[in-house]
Design a protein around this nucleic acid. Structure first.
Lengths: 140, 140
DNA sequence: CTTTAGTTTAGAATTGTTCTAATCTACTTG
DNA sequence: CAAGTAGATTAGAACAATTCTAAACTAAAG
């Protein structure tokens, strides 16, 4: 028998939320379980909402948006900008980049080490670089 | 007296449209003049629409969207994805990247040569890379 | 000219997201 | 444990960017 990771009250997820200073409500716990149970994931708000409903989690779409933003604000997620009409969130918050399969919409992580950026231009006038995003768009 | 570049029927712009296989209508000519008269520009649909109105060009917002997409389809423009809630179009269609000043929303081009990407990972399974986008987000 | 295929348009519709204000609930303190 | 309270959730309205629709228009070809 397997561990029922989506229904059991998972102490890891609970601590993860508390550790981030987020009150571990029923809704956040459920979403966090969906997001962090498996390995790295890329989700949109709508997709996560649908998934939650499929798992009989009772919550509203607004809560999904709130949770995704709260999680992102606390560094549990990272927002990726791919399409100019939907936001995507990544459970992998370490430094990395992406392959974007334009046909299917699928995303694949690229470890930061695999992309070496040489000769970065001066960030003009004391402006500090907050992040470098590399998106490799592929047809496949 | 200066050349009235926005009102004169500019043969360059006209040929540019025709060369791209786009019927040179009054609206497209006006937009093309605004876009290509000066050097490289980054515009959103709304911003271009506003600018057109300021120049007493009579057209609808839908036409601006149509024109931007048609121009992009013919390689006269390039779409940049920065924000997940508005599309931006770049008159510089050559290979290059961007500084994105998150505070002001300003964009600055980085010539492709200045960003050397080493050790690109395999594009999985015969998938061909259609484009590599590098966005350097700066606070300034 | 006339025809026709491509273009424009106003406004409605759609989509993704945020807001609002009422209700609820996790946590603190007594 | 019983309040009290700050924070969270919610349904639905509101919003912003974009696309759609179907009718009217127009550039180019015949």
């Amino acid at each position: 028998m397997r561990a029922r990771s989506t229904t059991a009250s998972d102490p890891t997820v609970l601590e993860r939320l508390r550790g981030a200073g987020l009150r571990p409500t029923r809704q956040r716990l459920a979403l966090a379980r969906l997001l962090f149970a498996r390995g790295d994931r890329h989700v949109t708000a709508e997709a996560l909402f649908t998934e939650a409903k499929q798992h009989r989690v009772n919550l509203s779409l607004a809560t999904v948006y709130n949770a995704l933003h709260d999680f992102t604000g606390k560094g549990l997620l990272r927002e990726i900008v791919l399409d100019s009409n939907r936001s995507c969130f990544d459970t992998n918050t370490s430094d990395h980049h992406h392959f974007y399969f334009e046909r299917s919409g699928r995303l694949e992580d690229i470890p930061a080490e695999q992309v070496r950026i040489a000769a970065l231009p001066q960030a003009p006038d004391g402006a500090s670089v907050s992040r470098v995003d590399v998106i490799i768009r592929v047809d496949g």
